[in-house]
Design a protein around this nucleic acid. Structure first.
Lengths: 243, 243, 243, 243
DNA sequence: GATGAATGAGGCTTCATTCAT
DNA sequence: GATGAATGAAGCCTCATTCAT
């Protein structure tokens, strides 16, 4: 009886919006990965404008001219980079399961996953905030769509909690951004937040706060059970392997 | 009995870190305002790198060379711009009173003020996120310090709630960033959030969420009273004058 | 029995101290010659600061940007120019033979060659005096070393005269600069000197003066023989072909 | 029965070729000295183009605008500077006496004085070589005339030696430049020459060389006497007071 | 006479993009 | 398909000169 999750091929991650002179699809895929990986790293550290095409080429181990066979402009490379980054977010989020189908657990898993991706790739998050505006207005839409598609993965888990009577009713879109900003915040304000919490604590504190604000009576007892089960798990020798 | 409100002179807003060739202090002040106003507007719309010094000069109604009498580099202009913006945030936040000394009311006032400044100057917020990295590493510290000084104005109001037994104990620094990010979020994700809430709703929803998550029993009843008094106020003909 | 003529490879003429973005050594060589030739001419006529990179590019028949693939700054171009000029001096001096191995004859040949190079490229000499100070302090050392290497070609011929008992003993370094300044003087004060002497006369008068001041009895008779042989030679129809 | 020494107001040192807006002659004199002193020092160290009018003003302790009341362009300041420098050379040379009227002694005194002025103001000499070309062609003539006027002070002493039968006949103009370049050389090649001689030695060696090359029999004996008298003098406790 | 803020043309340098090989 | 040398427009910054006070 679950609603069909939005999905249905979000055009937003479709890298074909960027034209390539090369026809061999597999080659395009491979070369672009090579180029974009270098680009994302440089953009993240130095910003879009401080990074030159020649630097990207050098770091990617290709010639300058080659890049222009796989992207028409520097902005294209940025777009590919942002898509690449957001695609990673979505992919990881999509594969985060949570304990069975328990809604709270699944929501926790989503937040946990999101925060940890951010923790592992802090530059990627920052990149999105810093560089999106360097894109031509038209391209920005792609990024927004990609963001919405990713958010939906969280939104649907929030909805599940509401539908299960664990959370009081509220505007899911706003709630979603609350969690999204919590995750992004870890990167955006890492210089300060990391003085007061580890990523583990940050995730738990964030979730705890969220549940406290929204949980119905039923939700609260469910949450207590969730915490107990986690506590038991955590007491076991091995836990989340370091990322 | 209250702690002394913040420090005395937060070095972080001290514009003298940027050197000027002109000695007349009042003139420096006036010219910089003129230049920085133009710069902030352009940076906000086009970004730092897309904005040329000639554009800034033209918009400020001065010659290109003049800017260099009041700032040594383009980065200096950005620093002054960011300082200017953050100073405005702090100033407005500082002057937000709230109903008497009631802690909840004062906290609400802080969030309300913050969000409304963001609402009135959305570019300013975005500017901070997008352009801070364009600064030389050394300059970024100034911005961070300025941010902390501003945050403290919120932090102390949260602390007041905790000390008054209205909120359960928690890490104030993390809570502060929660509110800060809520305010910033209104600008960062305005394209989406504004589809689901007005600024009034966004503030109220954010505060409500915050209180729900933290309030003790005492806090909850206090909050009920606060809402009642606000409802009464809101029913009166005049309300917050538009900014 | 003779000392090994100077060192092997005087680092001082090593153009690799200036970095190039281009890797193809032959191309670097060719392009630099093209650029430097234009630069030297312009620098000589207008001076370093009055010459723009655009002018150099235009005269060299390349684009402005190209120069920056072969030299990092305008100062680098000057350094290459000075090296180029000094290298020419040294090369010509090195290949000046003189009659057999007769010391006086060889010394004369050195002075004669030096003065004639100066005569053919008066701007080059002037350039060295006027523009060396436009170089970063560090670069000036290269030029000094190059000068010393060139001077050595004269110094060793003076030493040969002393060792052959033709000249009385004296500080060779000072004597060397005496001849060097004599040659340079032809360019530095050409506006005046050329009113009173042709280059031929200038060389002869300079050598005569030098020998008169230093020659031993043996040296004097040798010098008489040298002049006699030259006189005979000079009476022949063909003489030094104009450079 | 001596020829009238050229003199008769050499236009070349006439600073009135540079126009001033100020009419008070004494003030013009005073201000210009103030400005030119600063300018010469800066030009000497940094070169003409690297020195800004604002730097000159600062070092002279006046405002930028003031300079333009006493000189129409930056080139004018340079011209005044060069005139100032050459005037000093001439003045010092003019006042160098030598032992009575003995020709050799007077010539020695000229060379000695010249070299010592150069030694005390090495930058001044270098300035002349480096910066003269920065002048508009028309101005250079003034400098040349000033140089000739100064040279004449040496030339006439050489002539005296020839007329007294101490030197063989030769082109006085060339001989003059020989001595001039010797003096200038001390500054131009100081970095090298100072490794091998003190200024005392440099002067003596230079004069000795000169006399050796030119002296008649009569001149030689005169020179021997001159050296003997100097030796006696030198053995006395006090000698040339340090400059 | 003196000041110093203001001007704006011009230079060095960068770098996205092209194209011959 | 790949290379990397070549292009040239454009931007930051400097500084000689002016002018209102």
């Amino acid at each position: 009886m679950k609603k069909k999750p939005v999905s249905a091929a979000p055009r937003s991650f479709d890298a074909t919006v960027v034209k390539s002179q090369v026809t061999d699809v597999a080659l395009v895929q491979r070369r672009r990965e090579q180029i974009v990986a270098a680009a994302v790293e440089l953009f993240s550290v130095q910003g879009f404008y401080r990074t030159t095409m020649q630097e990207i080429a050098r770091k990617a181990g290709v010639s300058t001219g080659l890049i222009y066979q796989y992207a028409e402009t520097k902005e294209d490379v940025l777009l590919l980079g942002l898509m690449f980054v957001m695609e990673r977010f979505r992919r990881e989020l999509e594969s985060s399961r949570g304990e069975g189908t328990e809604p709270l657990s699944r929501l926790y898993a989503a937040l946990d996953t999101y925060c940890r991706v951010v923790d592992r790739h802090p530059e990627a998050t920052v990149l999105a905030y810093r560089s999106t505006m360097s894109l031509p207005r038209e391209y920005r839409e792609y990024i927004k769509q990609a963001e919405l598609a990713t958010n939906e993965l969280i939104a649907e888990r929030i909805r599940a909690c509401i539908e299960a009577g664990l959370f009081r009713d509220a505007k899911v879109e706003l709630l979603t951004y609350r969690l999204v900003l919590h995750a992004h915040g870890w990167s955006l304000k890492h210089w300060r937040l990391s003085e007061f919490a580890t990523i583990d604590e940050y995730v738990d504190e964030g979730f705890d706060f969220f549940v406290h604000a929204l949980a119905t009576r039923k939700g609260k007892s469910q949450y207590a059970r969730f915490r107990a089960s986690r506590a038991k798990q955590l007491s076991k020798p091995v836990r989340k392997a370091a990322g």
